[in-house]
Design a binder for these strands. Structure first.
Lengths: 343, 343
DNA sequence: CTGTTAGCGCTTTCAA
DNA sequence: TTGAAAGCGCTAACAG
């Protein structure tokens, strides 16, 4: 790298001022043990010469990079971006930067990404496991090695020594479905995501629990578990599902906002009126729901907050790393139902 | 950091095998100068002991971090996320990771972020200037110092020594408006973004040029430059604009998909039919347009490609950094009109 | 084929 | 108040 060659370093400043490197280092640190006049001279010269500290060298001896590694299953999901924004917001205020990587819904890629993180690039890790991640050994190993870690969202299994942030998916979807029932809906369809994913399993449970509680028989025909991992296919899956439905539902609980919108689109095209003929409720509240006509009622998940909380927990771990008894925490953030026009 | 303390390092492996650190280093590098049996022993021991190279130490002497710094104006804009995905895609295949930061539409924050990047954290920088960035000196200085840089999207001014990737905003919006005109539309509204932003200025020019060419008088009442930087306000601005319009437009060119959707939403609510009464065309094609009913016709911008290209150019710069005569490039990617239901 | 050594840029102890 | 020197973990030139 050419540009590293002629970079100004402490040595250059030291030479120019006829002092030692140590003095320059201390001076720039504003260490009172350095005579004020020397300090001022150092500052002035550093500025004049365009000095810029080398973070890598600093990190090598501090053992800290001030970088938080963030691993999400995919970029093109507004929920994850919101979480990242939250992490970034908190991290930024605490002098950390974030290195975001995507595991692209692949367990292999998740492991691979973690290896890079472990190469001491990051001070700690915040991640949301993929749906493929059944085995948490790779995470447990990292934690055992002492790498601070916070898991969020899709938590299949808790990891001792890590913090966890999520919402109560079962309860939240229960209340979504209960809401539809209380509005008099009885033929309520469920649109879920990949069955292997914990969050979708839980949202499905919530759906079943609500039907159960209100003695509404479960109709398998009204249940769809989408397993498309790409946008283009999701729409077809949903379209196909509703086209082949014999009984028309009078309510739909979609386990993401995106599914909710696709559902509305499909239903509208088939000539149904929302919410007159059928109510639709989504899950997430990532900004899409308000764009649509009608706007989408949904369970609002505090994505940004989730990121903030995750960062907070991680940075707390950094500060407590001396203390082996520091208690890790499991946080469930509250969701709320946002009523809009689709119900 | 606790976990850095008991990390296995080359020295540990060397001691266990009674060889020198250099040998271990070379062996792990699969250097044929090391006897095969030694190499194998080293590999085995390294694996057994759970050795993980320290990237920071490597970077300190190589002067390379294999990290690309990416600076975007905001996270919550699908266009930028798509570009990041493209960068990530290319970078990943070339053994680079990306450090994404947001300047949150602030010039001050842009400068601040670049300072961190310059602290030798990154090997090069890909960025899209904010609308506030009038003065490019901070960028020019970095380039002068020899830091490889690629600009994309909102390029107010070209920087000598940097690569540039963008689209032809004028031509693209010209063709969008021309498309409406050829469909017989004559009262065409323009919904733009922050006036200070180059891309919006250009899209506005394209609009004017098209009207001009077809001798359609420009009606100032039909022109809106949104200056909200936040989602919540954009909708109000657009709603307000259409409510107070005396003449109803028969066509709308929205300079982003988001504006396009908000426009459709507003028009639909006011009872107009799309595309019967009014055609709407957007700009971007970031996946939102297909969700809506009706789906949104738009100018498709190759966001992912733009990211890939930017990464490619940057990595080329890395490899050519010896050659001071390496020609920097300015790339204009092609856009295309995607016809959907709104026109 | 392997070891010794210097050095990447900075911090920090110890000594003066 | 300052300097000398060791060390962070690794690579690479040189020597053997």
């Amino acid at each position: 790298m050419i540009f590293k060659k002629n970079r100004v370093k402490l040595e250059d400043i030291a030479r120019k001022l006829n002092v030692s490197i140590a003095t320059v280092s201390r001076a720039l640190d504003n260490n009172p043990r350095v005579k004020l006049s020397t300090r001022e001279a150092v500052f002035k010269t550093a500025k004049m010469m365009g000095y810029m500290p080398n973070q890598i060298a600093k990190s090598l001896n501090s053992g800290k990079t001030n970088i938080i590694g963030v691993l999400i299953p995919r970029y093109d999901e507004p929920f994850f971006i919101e979480v990242c924004r939250g992490i970034d917001y908190y991290a930024r205020n605490h002098n950390y930067k974030i290195l975001i990587s995507s595991s692209r819904n692949s367990y292999a890629s998740e492991k691979e990404n973690l290896i890079y993180f472990e190469r001491s690039l990051v001070d700690g890790i915040i991640l949301s496991p993929t749906h493929e991640t059944k085995n948490m050994d790779h995470l447990k190993n990292l934690v055992k090695k002492g790498i601070p870690m916070v898991l969020f969202d899709n938590i299949t299994e808790k990891i001792k020594g890590a913090d966890h942030v999520s919402i109560d998916d079962k309860k939240s979807s229960f209340s979504a479905v209960e809401f539809l029932i209380k509005r008099g809906r009885e033929k309520i369809a469920f649109i879920g995501g990949i069955k292997q994913k914990k969050v979708f399993q839980d949202r499905f449970s919530g759906y079943l629990n609500a039907l159960n509680k209100y003695k509404i028989p479960v109709d398998k025909n009204l249940i769809l578990h989408c397993d498309s991992l790409h946008r283009e296919f999701e729409e077809k899956e949903i379209l196909n599902f509703f086209e082949h439905l014999q009984i028309k539902p009078d309510g739909v609980f979609a386990s993401t906002d995106n599914y909710g919108l696709l559902t509305m689109k499909t239903l509208l095209k088939s000539g149904l009126k929302i919410p007159e003929d059928v109510s639709v409720i989504g899950f997430g509240d990532v900004g899409l729901g308000e764009l649509f006509v009608p706007t989408l009622t949904c369970i609002a998940q505090p994505s940004f907050e989730m990121g903030k909380k995750a960062a907070e927990l991680l940075i707390n771990q950094f500060n407590q790393s001396e203390d082996p008894n520091y208690k890790k925490r499991t946080i469930k953030l509250a969701t709320r139902l946002v009523e809009r026009e689709s119900t």
